[in-house]
Design a protein around this nucleic acid. Structure first.
Length: 591
DNA sequence: TGTCTAGG
DNA sequence: ACGGTGTC
DNA sequence: GACACCGTCTCCTAGACA
């Protein structure tokens, strides 16, 4: 089992133990074990080998055994038993907003409630309101929480959220009462999916802003409307929070609500080390408590003056500016301290792209339209990689149709005017046994090919799938190879197939194969978390939109944000190179 | 008031 | 459950 | 050196409820 999966398993054990009402310190032990595991500097296998795992702070006897078991066998009977000892209904109840482990336990113990339906009943019958700590209001809230929990818990594609966020942001900024406005949260960090939207506004007159926000057309529910904070839900289920803060606190609120949580914790720890205390309300000297009468956290003097931008806030803690995309609490603070944080990729870094479809397979535009659209975006070149014949469902091209397309591309390039240069490629299916859907005699006619798995995705073990793809990576195609969407995931729809991504990266390194950052909002594959390793191994990234129509070329923008998140720089990104350089690289790959 | 939940 | 302390 | 015992916080804040 992968290290990250082991960590989340430990995390889950923590949750389950909490539901069982176990010793809170035991619960915490699992949670902190999960944390340390995720940010482990050393290689887990080496630690296990040398029997040094229990020397790691926070991992003792019990956790060591469980981690080893998960790593070597992927199984953990302790977990299975624990899981089986808790009714599924109780775990489901965690999705009800405002209803956490303690309350679930209480209701379970006092009334024997084990399912959501039973919970509904005791709410309606009034039994729950009798319990100490509960009342009529609690019952009503639980009931509405049950009704909405599906929509509440749902996450949304970054791309879809942006369509809601930008018009709202623009609207907020155009209000006369608004001094500054930004979107914060995981959207600003460019996470591949977003739970809810957070808007932060600087103003001294919140009321009209709240009013404007809660009366937007697509608002279906106003779940909170206070003096400084409102929450609404849009059709489609997306929730958005608006917070209005005084101008001199804007930066602190923006930073706080941008997160991530882990990043915030690290920032606050750092502040403490400097004798300061950081919160969403400002940065204070450690001893300064809020004044007695108000008790409000912001009611103390700021320890630093003149913090107007986030960069000032980082500087106050002795750090370089950390771009929002990097704030995941991984290593960005250490890097910012040592002035080693990569400069964020500029939004115009790409000179061209690869992996796009046309009408010939399952796209909607012609070669000419695609190359014109690419030029309109300021790109010098665009690669076409329509599906191969095995992708029957996508109208994959036969050998004849592909060769015909290559001829057409050459003709268009001869007389291209202001259009972008076209590269001839193919998205070649990696078949079940790891062979490719086209033979070398066809592939060598291409400028490049994208190797992707589309069929027979289930039923293979991680080892088999990894071997399958490695075999494809090692195949001589007579042209440059790009590994396409390495895990095959479709966000919010289906998990990727089981595959050892690190081994794929190693194989790509050994065979001079590039890896795609497929910026199609459903994919975002390879995942940003793996790129640091790819970069370390010297495997270049190709940012592609996997466009099926000209509008999809815009996906490149979120691809760049994701590459920023991964800490990639222009030298790591293949298609940051100009047309001439790409041409010679492609030629070299054919030699 | 204390307890619980939620938020980053 | 972990880690430090004190005890034999 | 094994064992029992005991305290245990990654940070900081708001708001709902009884």
């Amino acid at each position: 089992m992968e290290v990250r999966d082991i960590a989340s398993r430990l995390e889950e054990i923590g949750v389950l133990l909490e539901l069982k009402g176990e010793n809170p310190f035991k619960v915490r032990a699992y949670q902190s074990g999960a944390r340390t595991l995720e940010s482990l500097e050393e290689d887990l296998d080496i630690l296990i080998e040398e029997e040094r795992l229990n020397e790691v702070k926070g991992i003792g006897q019990a956790l060591t055994e469980k981690i080893i078991e998960l790593r070597t066998t992927g199984e953990l009977p302790f977990y299975d038993k624990l899981r089986a000892s808790i009714p599924d209904g109780l775990i489901e109840m965690l999705e009800i907003p405002g209803f956490g482990p303690k309350k679930i336990r209480k209701v379970h113990k006092a009334l024997g409630v084990e399912t959501i339906d039973a919970l509904k009943e005791v709410c309606e019958s009034g039994q729950i309101a009798e319990l100490p700590g509960f009342g009529a209001k609690s019952a009503a809230n639980i009931l509405s929480g049950i009704e909405n929990r599906i929509a509440y818990g749902k996450r949304h594609l970054w791309w879809d959220v942006e369509k809601v966020a930008l018009p709202l942001l623009e609207g907020l900024r155009s209000l006369p009462e608004v001094d500054r406005a930004e979107v914060a949260g995981s959207f600003r960090r460019a996470r591949e999916t977003v739970g809810d939207l957070d808007f932060i506004v600087a103003s001294s007159r919140p009321a009209p802003i709240m009013e404007w926000f809660t009366t937007r057309k697509n608002v279906v529910e106003v779940s909170a409307k206070g003096e400084t904070k409102s929450s609404v839900r849009f059709d489609g289920g997306l929730q958005a929070d608006l917070r209005v803060v005084p101008g001199d606190r804007f930066v602190f609120a923006l930073h706080h609500f941008t997160g991530s949580k882990d990043h915030n914790v690290k920032m606050r720890q750092r502040a403490l080390g400097l004798g300061l205390s950081l919160s969403e309300w400002g940065i204070f000297n450690k001893g300064d408590e809020p004044s007695e009468e108000s008790g409000k956290a912001y009611d103390r003097p700021l320890a630093k003056k003149g913090i107007e931008e986030e960069a000032d806030l980082f500087e106050a803690l002795g750090l370089d500016f950390v771009p929002p995309e990097r704030r995941e609490g991984i290593d960005e603070i250490e890097l910012a301290e040592k002035h080693k944080l990569e400069k964020p990729l500029p939004l115009d870094v790409l000179k061209g792209t690869f992996h796009n479809h046309t009408k010939a397979s399952d796209g909607h535009n012609t070669l000419e339209e695609m190359s014109q659209a690419a030029a309109d975006m300021g790109l010098e070149y665009i690669g076409i990689a329509d599906h191969s014949k095995a992708s029957f469902q996508a109208n994959g091209l036969s050998e004849e149709r592909l060769l015909e397309q290559v001829r057409e591309i050459h003709a268009l390039n001869k007389n291209r005017g202001k259009r972008a240069h076209l590269f001839a490629g193919s998205e070649v299916d990696i078949l079940k046994d790891g062979s490719l859907d086209f033979e070398k005699d066809i592939l060598k006619e291409l400028d490049y090919c994208v190797l992707s798995v589309h069929g027979s995705m289930s039923g293979q073990s991680e080892t088999e799938m990894t071997q399958r793809i490695i075999r494809a990576i090692e195949t001589d195609t007579g042209c440059l190879k790009i590994l396409g969407h390495p895990t095959g995931r479709l966000l919010l729809r289906r998990e990727g197939y089981a595959v050892n991504v690190r081994k794929l990266i190693d194989a790509a390194r050994d065979n001079g194969v590039l890896i795609e950052l497929n910026a199609n909002p459903w994919r975002m594959d390879m995942d940003w978390r793996y790129w640091a390793y790819a970069k370390e191994q010297g495997v270049p990234c190709v940012i592609t939109p996997d466009a099926h129509r000209i509008d999809d070329l815009a996906f490149l923008r979120v691809g760049i944000l994701t590459a920023r998140k991964a800490g990639l720089t222009p030298v790591d990104v293949f298609n940051a190179s100009s047309l001439d350089k790409i041409k010679s690289a492609l030629k070299k790959a054919k030699a």
